[in-house]
């Protein structure tokens, strides 16, 4: 995901990530024998694997701009940073000390997804990557909840999904508007708005 240089590649990698989370949720549903988790997994499949990426692709096509993401940090260096962040998240989750080994691994993955999401937001110029970064961070939070306590209460989960869905729509709209107004979606140039 961090080596993606173009918008479609980023969306594709987000789709893969969401698919893996779907698998993780499904397996958690098997091991913990909870009906809710199956439903949540289904929601992930529908929303994050299909609808949201399609929506993002649509927006990208509609605004019809250059596909490059505009990297502050090039792909190779981004990969190294991602590795460092993963190590950091390993250290952090160990210090959190929830015990059990497989849970520790889950937390590490969750943390690193969270960090990488934030890193994406910081190190890419185009507004798309900020949207994608936020979605990735949301994935990370979901993973963390799953790994610590086997998922949040069902209704909370549903509400969060709704939130994410709506926010994607809103952000898509915003990106569209920004593009219309400024004829670009380069976030670095927004600093000109400052007084």
């Amino acid at each position: 995901m961090v080596i993606a240089k173009r918008v479609p590649a980023l969306i594709r990698s987000f789709r893969y990530q969401s698919f893996f989370i779907f698998l993780v949720t499904l397996s958690a549903g098997f091991t913990e024998r909870q009906g809710d988790l199956y439903f949540v997994a289904l929601l992930i499949l529908v929303l994050k694997v299909f609808i949201i990426p399609v929506l993002l692709n649509l927006t990208a096509k509609r605004i019809n701009v250059d596909e490059g993401l505009g990297l502050f940090v090039n792909s190779q260096l981004s990969l190294i940073v991602a590795l460092i962040l993963s190590y950091c998240s390993w250290v952090f989750s160990r210090s959190l000390g929830f015990g059990l080994y497989h849970k520790l691994l889950g937390q590490t993955v969750a943390f690193s997804v969270l960090f990488i999401g934030a890193f994406l937001m910081i190190s890419r110029m185009k507004a798309f990557s900020q949207v994608a970064g936020l979605l990735v961070m949301e994935n990370g939070i979901f993973l963390f909840a799953l790994s610590v306590s086997g998922g949040m209460p069902f209704f909370v989960e549903i509400a969060i999904f709704l939130d994410v869905f709506v926010s994607v729509i809103i952000m898509g709209l915003f990106v569209y508007r920004i593009n219309k107004l400024f004829t670009h979606i380069d976030v670095t140039k927004l600093s000109r708005l400052k007084g």
């Binding site: 934030a118 937001m121 110029m125 976030v187 670095t188």
Partner: peptide, 25 residues
Amino acid sequence: IQPGSIHLYLAYIFAALLFLIIFMQ
């Protein structure tokens, strides 16, 4: 420290988060 760049603001938040976690460590 307030140049108006969204990336920098995000980076501040991120750095603060990392710093706090390291501090806790």
